[in-house]
Computed example of a mutant assay.
Amino acid sequence: MTKHQIYKMSVAKVYPHYISKAEKKGRTKSEVDEIIRWLTGYSQEDLDARLENQTDFETFFAEAPHLNPSRNLIKGVVCGVRVEDIEEPTMREIRYLDKLIDELAKGKAMEKILRD
């Protein structure tokens, strides 16, 4: 089976779109970073390094220090697909991130987005 193209896409290529989506709705880059750190366990320095090094999504999630166990509480639809129904692990992680950014852009409170 062929892997989806997004797996080899650099996180840094999509990251500005996450920021833009959030800022258009009055949210901040620091909130986007907080979401990514919560989801993956990367420190801000590690996240910045991954972006600078053009790390692809597959590697980004495979090498994440600590995928948050509460991420399994993320439910809903992204791109017409329910995130909780995605079976392929890497795609599910990518869609978790997409869903969290969507929630941020829709004005959801950070304490609700970060399901702890």
Score class of each variant (00 low, 15 high):
residue 8 K to C: 04
residue 10 S to I: 03
residue 11 V to T: 03
residue 13 K to W: 05
residue 14 V to C: 00
residue 15 Y to K: 01
residue 15 Y to M: 04
residue 16 P to Y: 01
residue 18 Y to V: 03
residue 18 Y to P: 00
residue 19 I to L: 06
residue 20 S to E: 14
residue 20 S to M: 08
residue 20 S to F: 06
residue 20 S to G: 08
residue 21 K to W: 07
residue 21 K to F: 03
residue 22 A to C: 03
residue 23 E to P: 03
residue 24 K to V: 04
residue 27 R to E: 08
residue 27 R to D: 04
residue 28 T to N: 02
residue 29 K to Q: 13
residue 29 K to P: 02
residue 31 E to G: 06
residue 31 E to F: 07
residue 32 V to H: 00
residue 33 D to Q: 13
residue 35 I to G: 02
residue 36 I to L: 12
residue 36 I to W: 05
residue 37 R to Y: 06
residue 37 R to T: 10
residue 39 L to Y: 02
residue 39 L to Q: 14
residue 40 T to N: 02
residue 41 G to I: 06
residue 44 Q to L: 11
residue 44 Q to T: 06
residue 48 D to W: 02
residue 49 A to W: 08
residue 51 L to K: 03
residue 52 E to K: 14
residue 52 E to R: 13
residue 53 N to T: 10
residue 53 N to A: 15
residue 56 D to A: 01
residue 57 F to P: 01
residue 57 F to I: 03
residue 57 F to H: 12
residue 58 E to V: 01
residue 59 T to Q: 13
residue 59 T to A: 12
residue 59 T to G: 00
residue 64 A to G: 10
residue 65 P to S: 13
residue 65 P to Y: 15
residue 66 H to Y: 12
residue 66 H to I: 08
residue 67 L to P: 02
residue 67 L to E: 09
residue 67 L to G: 00
residue 68 N to K: 01
residue 68 N to G: 04
residue 71 R to A: 09
residue 71 R to V: 13
residue 71 R to C: 14
residue 72 N to E: 15
residue 72 N to Q: 13
residue 74 I to Y: 05
residue 75 K to E: 15
residue 75 K to I: 07
residue 75 K to L: 13
residue 77 V to I: 15
residue 78 V to H: 07
residue 78 V to T: 12
residue 78 V to S: 11
residue 80 G to S: 10
residue 82 R to P: 07
residue 82 R to A: 15
residue 84 E to C: 05
residue 85 D to Q: 12
residue 86 I to S: 05
residue 87 E to G: 10
residue 89 P to Q: 06
residue 89 P to W: 08
residue 89 P to I: 04
residue 89 P to Y: 07
residue 91 M to V: 05
residue 93 E to Q: 12
residue 94 I to R: 02
residue 94 I to C: 05
residue 95 R to G: 01
residue 96 Y to R: 06
residue 96 Y to G: 00
residue 99 K to G: 08
residue 100 L to Y: 04
residue 101 I to S: 00
residue 101 I to F: 07
residue 104 L to N: 05
residue 105 A to E: 11
residue 106 K to S: 14
residue 107 G to M: 11
residue 107 G to F: 10
residue 108 K to G: 01
residue 108 K to T: 13
residue 109 A to D: 15
residue 109 A to G: 05
residue 110 M to C: 03
residue 111 E to C: 04
residue 111 E to Q: 13
residue 113 I to Q: 08
residue 115 R to G: 08
